[in-house]
Structure formats: C-alpha cells, structure tokens
Amino acid sequence: MKITLKVWRQKDAKDKGRFETYKLDNVTEHMSFLEMFDVLNEELIQKKETPIAFEHDCREGICGTCSMVINGRPHGPLQGTTACQLHMRMFNDGDTIVVEPFRARAFPVLCDLVVDRSAFDRIIQSGGFISVNTGQPQDANSLPVPKEVAEASFSAAACIGCGACVAACPNASAMLFVSAKVSHLNLLPQGKVEAKRRAQSMVKQMDLEGFGNCSNVTACEAECPKEISIKNIARLNREYMSSAVGSETEV
C-alpha cells in the first residue's frame, strides 16, 4: 500500500506548528497504525531528520497513552479502538491520512502529537478515590454488590483515561471522563460514603482545568475506545444536582 501522511509537527509548546507531508510506499495491511509510524520514523532517522514524537506504550489498547486524531477522529475510524489497535487494513491504497494531536486548551501540545493530559490526574486527585487506608478493610465478601450494579460500575471503570472524549467533543468537555469515574465509584456501596463530596469536588476541578461545557453532543461516546456511555453523564448530572442542592455537603 502507498499512503500519504499529513502530520502535525511542533517542536515544543512554544512553537507555532505546521503540517508536514510524508509519503510511504511499502505499508502492509497487517501493520498497526503505530507500526507505520515506526517505519516512517526509521526512514526519517536514516535521513538524519527528527522523527515524529507520538505517545504510545502498551500497544494493546489498554494503557490510554496514545493521543492522536486520525482524519478528524480521535484514535481513527474504527469504533471502540485505540490508535495502537488500528490496523492498516482499515485504509486503502493511495489514501491520504491527516494526523493531528488531541486539541483542547486543557491539553496543551508538548511536541508534535504529544499532549499534556495531567489535568485528568488533577481531577482524580480532587476526589476520584475511596478514602480507605491500607489494612483497614473487612473481608471482601462481607459487602455483597448486586451483579447488575457491579457490571454498571465496571463498564464505567473501563475508562482508560486517554482523553479521546475531550478531543472528540466540539466543546472539549471532560464530562464523559469525570462521569465515568464518578459512576464507577458512586455506584458501589463502598463508594457511596463519599459520593456527595466526590461529585462536587470533581466537577469543581474539571471546571477549573478549563474544559468546555457538556452540551450532550455525544461525540464522546461515539469516539470512546472503551465505548463508555453518556448514561454516565446523566448520572453525574443527577449526582451533582442532588449533592450540590439536595445535601448539606459543600466543597
């Protein structure tokens, strides 16, 4: 396969950045999208040029490190798939593919396709946990959790924190990420103790980080590699309203 790549190049956070075009002649369909980048980088190094910086790690679709927008879609055209699990058989010979970094004010570009997603960490630090010290808990089976609840919690917990929801949202809103974490914990009995505080603190931090406001466009769910549902956003809305208005908790 022959592929033309238009890739965003930006030396560092201060650089203005621009698209560069690269032509690849021997791409095979079994290659992953990132392996195509490996091949391109090897060619660039051979020419003593600077290889393209892109983030990746596990290449199994679970670590959430990859952060590129491929032809206008975070993680590319295949639904429920991270960029690293995307294979070239999804493209056709002669295609031109445009690759950009995740774009959000809260995710500044550091270099080429690498962005800073530490805003997500700060949101988790604001309340995305259950306050239990090591060694305190009682026996695991002393707290039965209905299977349906455990599964709803699990499907929210499947979030890999990649930020595709923010990248996909026309408003760069982080509601899907925040709501997935709030849902994961607030659904479980052990998470209920701090549920009120959690919903308020995490929304507060999300707003401070400069993410946009959710307007229910649902692009987040459409592009989420773990197919996390906007039902979680509705749940966060409920949790937040009942906490901020209906409870005495205030953060």
Partner: peptide, 22 residues
Amino acid sequence: GSIIDQCVAQGVPFAREYGGLL
C-alpha cells in the same frame, strides 16, 4: 487474602455472582 479485601474496599469492580459475592 488481604489484597482482595483492600482492592474491593478501594472500589475495584471484580466479577460477581448473582448473589453479589465475588
């Protein structure tokens, strides 16, 4: 055994049976 207790308390959504146990 304590690891499982600790993780459940942290909210790790382990697989469960219909009775709600692990």
